[in-house]
Design a protein around this nucleic acid. Structure first.
Length: 165
DNA sequence: TCGAAGATTCTA
DNA sequence: AGAATCTTCGAA
């Protein structure tokens, strides 16, 4: 199965109150302190896995949460994993894409920079506009524009909380 | 050891 | 708008 990353969010360390690494290293967030380019996968709300890519390395915590992808290959397999969902809704959320791709903690800490069970590769050059916004589903540092997504892409998650009226 | 909260999703 | 659901963390 293959997909194009269309939405991500950045998380850092002691300077980012919304980050799992804000209060230092714990067993769960240890991958954030490890080598860059590896998977950091955690289980949340009793139901969902979320996939991150570590970024900093050298013991400095940092990760990018993959919030949405656009399915490219293996669409039928994704549909089998998520029956009853229309195509556009298969992978448009951090918990949903991990289910559609059968990603769980067994992939935690795998090196995603080189070919393996789970990895990221460069795409052909492509032109699109990247938009930014506040991060979704957090209660701290809500003013930071650390969510980035492809403007107009239909696979971007729609569950961002509406801003107050 | 216990209580509370959570980088969400689905349903009513 | 609210429940589901269970792991993780920090405090007692």
């Amino acid at each position: 199965m293959t997909g194009k990353i269309v939405e991500v969010e950045a998380y850092r360390g002691s300077d980012d109150p919304a980050s799992h690494a804000f209060r230092g290293r714990t067993p769960r967030n240890a991958p954030m302190f490890g080598e860059a380019g590896h998977a950091y996968i955690y289980f949340t709300y009793g139901n969902h896995y979320c996939l991150n890519v570590t970024t900093q390395g050298s013991g400095i915590p940092g990760a990018v949460l993959i919030r949405a992808i656009e399915p490219l290959e293996g669409l039928s397999a994704m549909k089998r994993l998520r029956p009853n969902l229309p195509e556009f809704a298969l992978t448009n959320g951090p918990g949903k894409l991990t289910k559609a791709l059968a990603i769980d903690k067994t992939f935690n800490e795998v090196d995603m920079t080189k070919a393996g069970p789970l990895f990221i590769m460069d795409a052909d050059e492509e032109h699109f506009k990247i938009a930014r916004s506040t991060r979704v589903g957090i209660t701290a540092a809500t003013e930071r524009l650390w969510r980035f997504y492809i403007s107009g892409n239909q696979y971007v998650s729609r569950n961002q909380r509406p801003q107050g009226t």
